[in-house]
Nucleic acid binder design. Structure first.
Length: 228
DNA sequence: GCGACAG
DNA sequence: ATCTTGTCGC
């Protein structure tokens, strides 16, 4: 798929934050999302050794699924190194270069990108999903396994139950239960989608497990890429 | 000021 | 993210 050229790379956290502030205005957050995407891609990254600093070996995987059957349409993996130290709020800069490489190798252009992490549920409203959205132009959502920013009440115990994720007086995401009596996930929009559609998409991708089928596939693929 | 902090 | 044994439940 077509991916925009990567911007100048930051060498300090301050520079990285400046890039987020500069790209944020490019987000489209008022557009309705893809209610019936034909293809949905999941992205995930696995690390070899210690995932703290720069230079660690990593593998970025993208798996494209047919949304109707959840069957694999295409896969792509790229190996590289962590491009930035892990700093909460600047997480995207670690895996962005390798993820973009994997996306570029795709012949399919997915209708939706499901990212591991967050979209606007971020200190500067510009998490990984937002960054990938701006660089690809494709609708993106973020699905996190734990909370990062914001406060929330526990959603009901049944699949489909939700509660708003609030930060700074605004709704930045939604806490969504994808399975009865199982820890919920944290959904936030990245680019070109609304929150209702994002949650609908996540439920469609979780017929049997807590995490979206897309991320589960990508997780396995990236993990295997580091082993063999 | 202190602690918490996506992956 | 990754390092790791056993254990409870469907």
């Amino acid at each position: 798929m077509e991916v925009r050229d990567l911007h100048a790379w930051p060498s300090t956290p301050a520079e990285a934050e400046a890039i987020q502030e500069r790209l944020r205005p490019m987000l489209e957050l008022d557009a309705p999302g893809p209610a019936k995407p034909r293809t949905v891609a999941g992205l995930d990254v696995s690390y070899a050794g210690d995932g703290g600093g720069t230079g660690t070996r990593l593998a970025a995987a993208v798996v494209v699924l047919d949304s109707a059957t959840l069957h694999v349409v295409e896969e792509s993996v790229a190996v590289g190194t962590a491009a930035f130290p892990y700093v909460p709020g600047l997480f995207a800069f670690r895996e962005l270069p390798t993820l973009l490489e994997a996306l570029r190798d795709l012949k399919t252009t997915p209708d939706l990108l499901v990212c591991d992490g967050f979209g606007v549920a971020h200190p500067r409203r510009f998490g990984l999903a937002c960054h990938l959205g701006v660089l690809t132009g494709v609708p993106t959502i973020g699905v996190g396994k734990t909370a990062f920013v914001g406060a929330y009440e526990p959603p009901g115990r049944r699949r489909g139950d939700t509660s708003p994720l609030l930060d700074g007086g605004q709704v930045v995401g939604r806490v969504l239960r994808t399975r009865d009596d199982v820890k919920p996930v944290f959904v936030s929009v990245g680019h070109r989608t609304d929150l209702d559609t994002a949650c609908r998409n996540v439920l469609d991708l979780t017929p049997g497990y807590r995490l979206p089928e897309t991320t589960r596939r990508a997780d396995r693929l990236s993990r295997d890429a580091l082993s063999g």
